[in-house]
Design a protein around this nucleic acid. Structure first.
Lengths: 351, 351
DNA sequence: CGCCGGTGCTCATTCGTATGACCGACCACG
DNA sequence: CGTGGTCGGTCATACGAATGAGCACCGGCG
């Protein structure tokens, strides 16, 4: 029961103790039911519990944490704004999984958004304050511009996992990553199964580990299946889609394209139709990116974002519970889905 | 610079102090630049700042808060799950506004989701622990099932605002509420302007302040404009849409319906078409709910959710800063928008 | 010379909780 | 009767930072 007279400050253990006629530590022991198991007899315990109820006492989680306990708070730090336009956001679906799993494990989430500098960039260390320490550990996502921050965070012993692969020397933190290598290989296999033997790989201008994975997955599969890559060294730069490559399609010398992004795929389609070619009749196209949010359909891959979010939380919790255990990154399989942009090879140089 | 050898625990003020050859309190004073204005000379200050930089010290916000400072954390507590199906969620858009404003004011958000009991219900006080106290204050939203909790929270002096009106005796906490009263009146005026003079009001089965507002807004406008309400006392229960009301439409005795929810509107349309009547040719319909997420369009109102979220944050921050100031609820105007379900009155008993 | 006041710090305490150490009372056993 | 063990707690301290009070030193003034 709380009194109806005005607002008062919340009760603490010492208030409970006074009312129950015991010491603060007795109250603490009853509440946290510590190792001193039932050193407090039922009678006293009941008296204390009665006092707790009567005062409406609730433990202060902050003080609890200060004393080395956990806050049951998990942080989420995105290096790019999360919610503005969140419905379309790449990150939003991750958050769904994170929230879901956090609720199941009785954790609360801290969304670190205060660190924005207004220009869209977000940093972990702002004004030399690392707010992340409020949470027991954090999930990081986004294109982290500053690897130094990640290294620093790691060296401070702060528990965190990263969604998406990010390699930082000397800071082997765990990452939860879509298995782009395997998905790229599967896509190559699928196109190959349609009879295509001469491929072009069209890269986007973005660099980073995720793209390395796609490229090596593609390269391996191509080599393994004896496919001819007509874009040796994956030459096509972003702005170019250079005419040499398009010529290859026009001549029927190349019959399939594996492209890194929807953006490039769109451009490819435009350029092809300018030459009177269409997808997939003349050229089969597969995209190494999740295009499910887009208007057009492509043969592509699906990033299981929700699942990745859930795995990230589990992984993080394990880290928090045993900070010294060796932690490994987790590869999460991507489904490869048809989108009607791969057709059987009918022209060109099949043998 | 942090060493590259392994992971260590984060530095604290005492570490900085030792390195700089001063006391912990000197470090604290330099950092918080307290009232002892520049009692610390530039030379010492620099030495301390150098030590801070060299150790990579960052203040522990938890400890800071314990000492009565703020955490710069704002809580968000939804009584219903927030994210599952969040894209369609009623609450999601509020969150957008909240996050936006929180970032602008350099606050972080805590999403209290841990308090779910798995059955969908969420409580503030779970296992006698009020987790909200982690945050400086909280925004509450949703259909709070338990008003006792709200009263208790208020009496403990915890700063919070509620999105949506909720009246609790003796706990006059501020609410940020869509102005349903005014919107309902505007809608009645709009229908009236189309020449309709005999209305039916169809209520949903849900009770609560927001519905009271709509009902009284409707009732006032109807009385003011001399409209005849053919559903005296707003009789129509939820499951019924009783045939007496439908008969009224069929006879042309009633030409317009003002309904509380899209659900009822849908049902009404179905029942009408079973009698060979259509909307809006035979019956004009307006909905007192934001149906923008729905497939069908109705004349309805728009809840400015994002704006409400922003206002809630501002209001909350003001409360945190001055807990004793009198706080008032805020009414936020809803836009009334056409949806093609109101037509000029052509039949029935206009005079 | 003695005292005042300002400078430049340090000391000690506080916030609310957890917990290892410890202590008195009581009982049992040899 | 002495000794040891368990029961039922209390005491004291730590967590990390903030802060009022206080202290030593110095310069200036009467």
């Amino acid at each position: 029961m709380t009194s109806t007279t005005g607002r008062q400050r919340a009760a603490r253990q010492s208030d409970v103790a006074r009312l129950a006629g015991v010491s603060q530590s007795a109250v603490s022991r009853v509440i946290s039911g510590d190792g001193t198991d039932s050193r407090i007899p039922a009678e006293t315990r009941d008296r204390i519990l009665a006092a707790i109820a009567s005062l409406g006492y609730v433990p202060n989680p902050i003080a609890r944490n200060l004393r080395g306990k956990r806050t049951q708070l998990l942080g989420v730090h995105t290096f790019e704004p999360l919610f503005p336009n969140a419905r379309e956001s790449f990150y939003f679906e991750f958050l769904l999984g994170i929230e879901e799993r956090a609720e199941e494990t009785r954790h609360d989430l801290v969304l670190f958004s205060s660190t924005g500098d207004g220009a869209g960039g977000r940093k972990i260390y702002r004004e030399e304050t690392n707010r992340l320490t409020i949470a027991d550990g954090s999930v990081l996502l986004g294109m982290s511009p500053d690897r130094e921050e990640l290294a620093r965070l790691w060296h401070e012993g702060y528990p965190f996992v990263h969604i998406g692969r990010r390699d930082v020397d000397g800071a082997p933190f765990p990452c939860i990553v879509p298995d782009y290598r395997r998905a790229a290989a599967e896509i190559v296999e699928r196109v190959h199964a349609h009879g295509h033997r001469r491929f072009a790989y069209l890269r986007d201008s973005i660099e980073g580990e995720p793209y390395d994975d796609r490229r090596s997955g593609y390269a391996d599969a191509v080599a393994r299946l004896g496919i001819v890559d007509t874009s040796p060294g994956f030459v096509s730069g972003v702005s170019g889609l250079d005419s040499a490559v398009i010529d290859g399609f026009a001549r029927g010398d190349t019959t399939a394209a594996v492209v890194e992004s929807e953006r490039i795929a769109d451009r490819l389609r435009t350029e092809l139709s300018a030459r009177g070619l269409s997808v997939p009749q003349d050229v089969s196209v597969a995209v190494l990116e999740d295009t499910s949010a887009a208007g057009e359909h492509w043969d592509d891959l699906r990033i299981p974002r929700k699942q990745i979010g859930r795995i990230a939380v589990d992984s993080l919790i394990a880290m928090v519970q045993d900070p010294d255990a060796e932690r490994e990154s987790v590869l999460v399989a991507c489904e490869v889905v048809p989108g009607g942009t791969i057709a059987d090879a009918t022209r060109g140089a099949e043998r």
